[in-house]
Simulated assay, not measured.
Amino acid sequence: MVKDSGWPVKRRKWNAEMWVGYGFIFPTMAAFLVFSLIPTIGVIILSFFDWNMINTPVFLGFENYIEMFSRSEFWHSLWVTVQYVLYSQVTKIILALSIALALNQKLPGMKLFRIPIIMPWIVMPIAVGIVWKWILSPSTGLLNYYIQQVGLPTVTWFSPGNVLQSIALVDVWQYFGFTTVLFLIGLQGISPMYYEAASIDGANKWRSFWHITLPLLRPTFLFVLVTAVIGSFQVFDIVYATTQGGPGALSKVYYYLIYEKGFQQLQMGYASALSVFLFVVLMIMTMIQLRVFRDNQ
């Protein structure tokens, strides 16, 4: 009797809960399928074809990839992107960690600075690029105006020698606040008892930072590095709004090359091959970062 009366009820309850659970995750899975998985598979397939978005696609096999690796513009854009990533991410991480350490101090008024530093992050990158193009203008720019007021020589920000650093400056300004908040969350998750024990043992602030703060911030560093590197390799909005790859091709980052080949020259197959290569590179870099941080734990 217990088996007959209890089992069917339990089974009906499990089925109801199961379908409710599927109902909750269905919108997310459908969005992932429609906007991520299917387009990704489509790009991979299209990378083996020649298609100008008008005529019928022509199968080429691996010719797009062979052509990609044989072109100097591919290697140039890749090198430009690597330089940009180094300029922006090293500066951003050092600045964000320094500000997070300051905001983590128990001083009056520190909490008031947390909201302003995150505000640039919520602005559209294309709008940020347009505004900063005006601010960094060599003749009418606001930044050069204030530089002149203090008696310093003006800077041609988008000149061949400064263009990548200037674009990295814009990226750092927009995203350092978000990175700061991430580090601040990580710092607040460290128990004060570690520092109290270190002070009892005679450790100064530098040794406590090196042997306590940095090791316990490793998960935060991992998340920041993975997301920052992926985001930096996909930079496009700021470059498009400020330099459009110029002067010459000195700021033609990898994503701008994809845009140029796909939507200006209508070489969609070749642009897809570029996209697939970037996807593989980012996946490999993410796996390496995960492995390095896991081995150091």
Rank of each mutant, 00 (worst) to 15 (best):
M1A: 10
V2K: 13
V2N: 13
D4E: 09
P8T: 02
P8W: 11
V9G: 00
K10E: 08
R11V: 00
A31W: 12
F35T: 02
I38V: 14
P39S: 08
F48Q: 05
F49C: 10
W51A: 07
T56S: 10
V58Q: 13
L60Y: 10
F62E: 01
Y65E: 03
E67H: 11
L78F: 15
W79K: 09
V85T: 15
L86R: 05
S88D: 05
Q89K: 03
T91Y: 01
K92T: 14
I93W: 10
I94F: 11
L103V: 11
K106L: 08
L107D: 03
G109I: 07
I115A: 11
I115H: 05
I117T: 07
I117R: 05
P125D: 03
I126H: 03
A127H: 05
K133Y: 12
L136V: 06
S137V: 02
P138M: 07
T140S: 15
L142V: 12
L143C: 02
N144V: 04
Y146D: 00
Y146W: 15
L152M: 15
L152Q: 14
T156Y: 10
T156F: 10
F158G: 02
S159E: 09
L169S: 14
Q174C: 03
T180K: 09
V181P: 00
L182Y: 01
F183G: 04
G186Y: 04
G186H: 04
L187W: 03
G189T: 01
Y195P: 00
Y195Q: 04
S199F: 07
I200V: 15
W206K: 07
W210Q: 13
L217T: 01
R218K: 15
F221Q: 00
F223R: 03
L225S: 14
I230A: 12
Q234C: 05
F236L: 15
F236C: 05
D237M: 11
V239L: 14
V239Q: 11
T243A: 06
G245E: 07
P247G: 03
P247N: 03
L250R: 12
V253Y: 04
I258F: 10
E260A: 07
G262Y: 07
F263D: 01
Q264V: 08
M268W: 07
A271I: 02
A271D: 09
S272M: 08
S272W: 09
F277M: 15
L278E: 11
F279M: 14
V281T: 06
I284L: 12
M285A: 15
M285G: 09
T286G: 11
I288Q: 01
L290E: 05
F293Q: 01
N296V: 07
Q297Y: 09
Q297R: 11
Q297N: 09
